[in-house]
């Protein structure tokens, strides 16, 4: 039984605040005092702050369950999802900042969507079908369950942006597609419905803004909230792209 006589911890949550829409506003840390509750996540803590202390605090969330990818932020200097981070696993003093690289909307809110859209358009992250029109009255082509599983594993990416925020190359090369982009290529490369070949993928990622820009620091792999196998996927993709380059 949990000892209910123990007092809850008092948390001090410091948020890097800055609203670029407000003329003259300057970045500053603002600290909120908050009583911890059982099972509290940073998502719950931030909502409580916004509801009871400061309705102007900007942060994003939708699903509160690690599926929508909206609440990525720097948690004590490390990218992560607010909704998947229990305060009990952190010290009583917590520092939150917006993800770097992405355009700042205000406070903890960044425009990952704009970045992801540009990356998706550049890498054409959709199935390029061999034929123009599918006959919908036919039974679908079958896929081995193991292959479907492999594709599904990579398809679990929620585009939260944590891998980009944790990436050394992304900080230096503005056009680097990052682990999220390379993972998408790895996903469509596996998909038998996609008619593209490695030669086609080489055109998309065979340069320093693609797979050869990766310095193998693998911060992406360490911080991915979905535990995607980014290390092995990027290494495999690099090997395949080298093979095309040497042809």
């Amino acid at each position: 039984m949990k000892d209910t006589t123990t007092e809850n911890r008092q948390l001090k949550i410091s948020v890097l605040r800055y609203n670029p829409q407000v003329p003259g506003d300057r970045p500053r840390l603002q600290t909120y005092d908050l009583e911890e509750a059982a099972g509290m996540t940073l998502f719950i803590a931030l909502n409580e702050i916004r509801e009871k202390q400061d309705p102007s605090l900007q942060f994003d969330f939708v699903c509160r369950a690690g599926i929508c990818g909206s609440c990525g932020m720097m948690i004590n200097g490390r990218p992560g999802l607010a909704c998947r981070t229990l305060t009990m696993n952190l010290g009583p003093e917590i520092t939150l900042a917006p993800l770097p690289v992405f355009e700042l909307i205000g406070d903890l809110s960044v425009n990952t969507g704009k970045w992801m859209r540009a990356m998706s358009e550049r890498l054409e992250t959709w199935v390029h079908m061999k034929q123009q029109e599918v006959d919908l009255t036919r039974i679908e082509e079958r896929m081995e369950p193991q292959l479907a599983e492999e594709i599904y594993l990579l398809d679990r990416c929620i585009e939260c942006g944590c891998c980009i925020a944790g990436c050394g190359t992304a900080r230096m090369r503005e056009a680097f597609v990052g682990a999220v982009g390379l993972n998408k290529i790895a996903r469509f490369r596996l998909d038998p419905r996609d008619g593209r070949t490695d030669d086609d993928y080489y055109e998309l990622i065979g340069d320093d803004d693609g797979v050869f820009g990766c310095m193998s620091l693998l911060g992406c792999h360490d911080v991915c909230p979905k535990n995607l196998p980014l290390q092995t996927r990027i290494a495999f993709l690099r090997r395949k792209m080298v093979a095309v380059g040497l042809k």
Partner: peptide, 15 residues
Amino acid sequence: GVHYKAAGANPELVT
């Protein structure tokens, strides 16, 4: 009444 008057993404106005 909304206390925070900032233009753009204003979470209090959204609420």
